[in-house]
Each structure stands twice: as structure tokens, then as C-alpha cells.
Nucleic acid binder design. Structure first.
Length: 509
RNA sequence: GGCGGCGUAGCUCAGUCUGGUUAGAGCAGGGGAAUCAUAAUCCCUGUGUCGUAGGUUCGAAUCCUACCGCCGCUACCA
């Protein structure tokens, strides 16, 4: 029976176009989703957009649009980006969709009836020109942190979620499920935070009009975070498809940025506990990208546009760089210099050149056809062992989402294959030992063929291109996992030598 | 302020939990080989105060203390 696998990105706020950080998160999910599909799991990979809230209404009116018109525009841009980056999501949820609004209202009502949401008063400092409430701690010298104007203390009617009630249960859960939060250094911060005491959470607003109405009290709208988090339930059929819900919930991985880790590891679990629903198995908080050593920000004007980078270096090179450059979970630095270095060293010199030299030799020495392998010698066995051992090593890393280590292991095999060529020196064998030559070339091609399966989740286009070069007729996407076993390459297959996969980039930057 | 983390080769880091061979890897640099290949590849090449000062120990990058430097978290802004 196929296992299920439910993985999510956050839903991205539609206040602006997406940047490298969003692309990073989504590409990482895509890699994992593709790998799991290859394993034969039934995958639900979800992404989408968070469309409610004051900021969206403001952004829209600034452009002379209604909030929904504005959201529609951003959504169409987001979808274009995911297509460009080869993102293979199964669903794209928008919080303005009817299926979601109904789910949120249902859940709000349920929690209210249960007593976990109650009506109270929210006390805060209100800035009339920004129409926003602030906590005392957010004020800068008693003034609005946004516009600097004087704020006034106001009380607002609000519904509250009894977050405080779940403090103990959360700590117990963290304790009993050490894998729940990753990376571990962020876990410590969360545990600490909960230990410090939890206050009930205001989960409705009367000042915010652009939001989902509280069903039994329409002057309130649902707080955007509650609205947003519930998307994970909506999309797997919480309300409308019991069978689907039973199958996919709980989510296997919520992959989120470190800045929203807390919402996913504290507030979200507490809500689920209140609903009596199992918690997601894992929440992973990834790091941020700086650019040329500097924090990325609009005001600095250094926001990296994923479209631009993919157009300049290729989508796969971009995907590769993001996944390879930084241990997953840590912050990383994006620079063209670093990208070019990775591109040349890993993609052009190691992988690309390995393919080129292998295919050329097959063309020159054995008429472009996969030869018949003969008896194995020591270096053959070493190579084959490396290739065969890849699966076991890689799957451990996938479980921990150490995607950069997955690539590290794949490239170890690629490096080894280059060394294998030097050791066996086929150009000499060509003159001295045809049988041995054929074995060596077969092993090389077979190594490339198997490795291509491992490259596929990271660089789908590249995998497809290598696959074609190797003379495979079926699409690699349709291949079952068994095809990655050593020795499935058929002798006699006609290969297709061609231009370099990754032409070297002159690094005069 | 409170809690936590980090400081190892020019650069990025592994190793520290479970103390014990000459402290490792990649990239960059230097030398050489080879010629199938995208001047790619392969081989050789690092005497590094393992932040500083103490301590524990037969023995510490690894445990403890202090100090210096950097960073994260400290809720309702997505």
C-alpha cells in the first residue's frame, strides 16, 4: 500500500511579488515532494496565498484596486513563477476561496461553542492614521512605530483563543515528540517561550474589514493568522472530503521560514489540540538569504528576483544553488559570484563534463551504442558499491530534510566516476583491451543513468536532458523506483552525444 | 535585562552530545600527470595559538568557569 505524504509551504502574503526567500521554501518542498513521489508515496504538495488583512486592503487601494482584484493579480504572478521554477504542487489554495472561508467559519464557531474562544476586550494603543492597534511594547516612545504619531489607549471588543490553557500540553508534546520541531536550535527557543507563559490570543478584529466575518458576530473579522493557518486543513478536505482528510491529515511537514516558526509550532498546535485533531508530524524552520552579505530589503533595493536569476543562469542551476549552498535550516548568502562558482565547479566541471566525456568516448570507441559489460574488477566494484549505496544514504538525509547533504552524497558519486575514468583510462584500453573498455564504458553510462534519478528532484529539466542523451525512450518521470537498480541499462541502446549541459561561465565577475 | 547559540585552514564549514591515532572536507592558491572531455579531469600540496585565560583529567577543539567578539529568541506586523 502506498504511503501518503502531505507537505506544505506557508501561504504567501499577497502584499507584494515573491522573492528568493519564497522561491527557496517552495523549491525545497518541491524537491521533497518529487522524491516522495518517486518512492511511490501518494503526495499532496500544497502551496497558496494568504489574502486577507489590513495590509492587503491598503496595498490594493494604493493601486486603485479592490483587495480581491489586487490579490488576483499577485496570484497570477505567483502561479507564473511556480510554473517557471518547475514547482509540482498538487493544489494552490487561496484564503479568499469559498472552501476556505467556510472552513474557517466552521472552526471558529466550533471553538467558540467549545469555550476555547471567548469574547473579551483587547486593550491596546491605537494609531488613528494607520488604523492599527499596537502593544505597549511595540510603541516607540509612546508613538506609532509606523508613522511616529501619537497613539491613544483604546479598548476594543475582541474574541480570544484560550492559548494559555494549552501551555502544559504543548510542553508535554514537545517533550514526547523530539522530532516535531527542526532545526533543534529553534526548538529550544520555542520551548523557552512557552515556559515563559502564554497569554490568550486575540483572534478577531473589528477594525479590519477585509477578512472572513465571524459567523455569529459580523462586526468582527477573523484574525489573519488564524485564517491563514487553517488553510492546511481546508486543502486536505477537513470540511468537504472526509476520506481525503482521513488519508492526508496530519501533515507530514510544514516547511516555513524562521520568522513564522512560532505560529506553526505554538499557536497552530494549540488550535489543533482544541479541535481534537492530531498535530503535524514536523515543522521545519528554514533560514533566510542575505544578498552579497547584506540583509535583503526593499529599501536597499537588493531584493533578488527568482525570475531574473533563472533566466540568467537557468532554472535548474538556480534550484541547485539554493539547495546546495547552505545547510538546510541555516541562513545563507546569495551572490552571483557564489552561484557562478557552484555552477562551474559542480554543474559544468563535474556533472556536465562527466556526461560529455563519457558520451564522447562511447561515440568514438563503440559506435555510440551501450556496450556489453564483462567481468568486474576492483575499481568497478568500488564504483558500483558507491552507486548502490546511494539510496540508503540519501533517504536518511531526506528524512531530516538535509537536502544539501543529499546533494553532497550524489556529487560524491559523480566525483568518483570522474576518478574512475582516470584510473581505468579508456583511451588506453581502446588500444589494448576492447573487452575491458566495453565494461568500463558500460559502468560509466550505468552510473550516469542511476544518478540521474537522484538528480531529478532537484533539477527536473537536467535529469530529463541527461535521460535523453543516454538514449532512453520513456520519460524519466514515468519510471518506477525499481529502474534505479544497477544493471537495468540495456546494451545496444543508441546514445546521443550533444552540446554541454552546462556551458562554463567565464567568471570575470 | 532574561534564555540560548556561535567563534576550527585565505573563504564556507564538519568534528564537540558519547574527552583518546599525525584536527578533516569543499572552494580558492601552488606544483605535476594525462588528453576521452566544457583548458574540464586526475594526483600531490595546509607547522591551522581549534576566540582568550584558567580549571578537571593520564589525556580536551571536545567537559567546567570567567572574559572578549558575533548572533538568535523575548507573541498578536504575514
Amino acid at each position: 500500500m502506498a504511503k501518503k505524504f502531505y507537505i506544505t509551504t506557508p501561504i504567501f502574503y499577497v502584499n507584494d511579488l515573491l522573492h528568493i526567500g519564497h522561491a527557496y521554501c517552495t523549491i525545497a518542498c518541491d524537491v521533497v515532494a518529487r522524491f516522495k513521489r518517486w518512492l511511490g508515496d501518494e503526495v499532496l504538495f500544497l502551496t497558496g496565498t494568504d489574502e486577507h488583512g489590513q495590509k492587503i486592503a491598503q496595498a490594493a487601494s494604493l493601486k486603485g484596486k479592490t483587495p480581491l482584484e489586487w490579490a488576483d493579480y499577485i496570484v497570477s504572478e505567483d502561479k507564473k513563477l511556480w510554473e517557471k521554477l518547475n514547482i509540482s504542487h498538487d493544489d494552490f489554495i487561496r484564503t479568499t476561496e469559498e472552501r476556505h472561508e467556510r472552513t474557517v467559519q466552521e472552526i471558529f464557531t466550533k471553538l467558540y461553542q467549545k469555550g476555547d474562544i471567548y469574547k473579551g476586550e483587547y486593550e491596546g494603543w491605537y494609531c488613528t492614521s494607520c488604523e492599527t492597534f499596537y502593544l505597549e511594547s511595540q510603541l516607540e516612545g509612546g508613538r506609532c512605530p509606523e508613522c511616529g504619531k501619537v497613539t491613544e489607549k483604546l479598548k476594543e471588543e475582541s474574541y480570544f483563543f484560550k492559548l494559555s490553557k494549552y501551555q502544559k500540553r504543548l510542553l508535554n508534546y514537545f517533550d514526547e515528540n523530539p522530532e516535531f520541531m527542526q532545526p533543534s536550535f529553534r526548538k529550544a527557543e520555542m520551548v523557552n517561550f512557552v515556559k515563559g507563559g502564554l497569554r490568550d490570543l486575540s483572534v478577531s478584529r473589528t477594525a479590519v474589514k477585509w477578512g472572513i466575518p465571524v459567523p455569529f458576530d459580523e462586526k468582527h473579522t477573523v484574525y489573519v493568522w488564524l485564517d491563514a493557518l487553517i488553510n492546511y486543513l481546508t486543502a486536505c478536505g477537513y470540511l468537504e472530503d472526509k476520506v481525503k482528510f482521513e488519508k492526508f491529515w496530519p501533515a507530514d511537514v510544514h516547511l516555513v521560514g524562521k520568522e513564522i516558526f512560532k505560529f506553526h509550532t505554538i499557536i497552530w498546535p494549540a488550535i489543533l489540540m482544541a479541535l481534537g485533531i492530531p498535530l503535524p508530524k514536523k515543522v521545519f524552520g528554514h533560514g533566510w538569504w542575505t544578498v552579497e552579505g547584506e540583509k535583503m530589503s526593499k529599501s536597499r533595493g537588493n531584493v533578488v528576483d527568482p525570475v531574473e536569476v533563472s533566466e540568467e543562469f537557468g532554472v535548474d542551476a538556480f534550484r541547485y544553488f539554493l539547495m546546495r549552498e547552505v545547510p538546510f535550516g541555516q541562513d545563507g548568502d546569495f551572490s552571483k559570484k557564489a552561484l557562478v562558482r557552484r555552477y562551474n565547479a559542480d554543474l559544468a566541471n563535474n556533472l556536465g563534463n562527466l556526461l560529455s566525456r563519457s558520451l564522447t568516448m562511447v561515440e568514438k570507441y563503440v559506435e555510440g551504442r551501450v556496450p556489453e559489460p564483462g567481468g568486474e574488477e576492483k575499481e568497478d566494484r568500488e564504483l558500483i558499491q558507491k552507486v548502490k549505496g546511494l539510496f540508503e544514504r540519501v533517504i536518511k538525509y531526506y528524512d531530516k530534510l538535509k537536502l544539501n547533504s543529499v546533494l553532497g552524497d550524489i556529487w560524491e558519486v559523480i566525483d568518483y566516476a570522474n576518478r574512475y575514468i582516470e584510473r581505468t583510462a579508456p583511451w588506453k584500453l581502446e588500444k589494448t583491451d576492447r573487452k575491458r573498455l566495453e565494461t568500463v564504458l558500460y559502468n560509466l553510462l550505468e552510473t550516469l543513468r542511476v544518478v540521474t534519478f537522484y538528480i531529478l528532484p532537484f533539477m527536473p529539466q537536467t535529469a530529463e536532458r541527461i535521460w535523453e542523451r543516454l538514449g532512453m525512450e520513456e520519460k524519466i518521470y514515468n519510471q518506477k523506483i525499481e529502474e534505479a537498480q544497477w544493471g537495468r541499462l540495456k546494451s545496444g541502446t543508441k546514445i546521443k552525444a550533444g552540446k554541454p549541459l552546462f556551458p562554463r561561465i567565464k567568471d570575470d565577475l
